[in-house]
């Protein structure tokens, strides 16, 4: 799938994953998105980390570090504010998808009359 098509959807996808999984780390997020969309959506690391850092600076998500094997691992989770923002955003996003779905279902003859 052309990444341009889903560029604006990365944030809702990420927030939805965090609201479902509690806490996640960067590599896990990229892998899970790829797997759960059967490879249709692939988020580049160069887009994921800047988004995570932006959301953290905005207090939408927070992080903690845990030692895993022989290295530190940064886990992200939604903050209280993030939970509220996510519900509102996912509601909007669902409405957007329904609108797009309806739009693309309309036949050209119906539009031109």
């Amino acid at each position: 799938m052309d990444p341009k098509l889903y560029k604006g959807s990365i944030e809702p996808i990420l927030l939805k994953l965090l609201s479902e999984h509690g806490e996640m780390y960067g590599y896990q997020i990229t892998k899970l998105i790829k797997e759960s969309t059967q490879g249709e959506i692939e988020i580049k690391e160069g887009s994921l980390y800047p988004l995570l850092h932006k959301l953290e600076a905005n207090d939408t998500i927070e992080s903690s570090i845990k030692m895993v094997k022989n290295r530190g691992r940064k886990y992200y989770r939604l903050t209280e504010k993030g939970h509220q923002e996510t519900s509102a955003l996912l509601e909007d996003f669902t409405r957007y998808m329904m609108t797009m779905n309806n739009f693309f279902k309309v036949k050209p003859s119906q539009v031109t009359g």
Binding site: K44, E45, G46, Y49, P50, H53
Partner: peptide, 14 residues
């Protein structure tokens, strides 16, 4: 996986 810009985009945005 970090694309042609490598880590620079990550650092810049951070």
């Amino acid at each position: 996986g970090f694309g042609t810009l490598g880590f620079s985009q990550v650092v810049k945005e951070k």
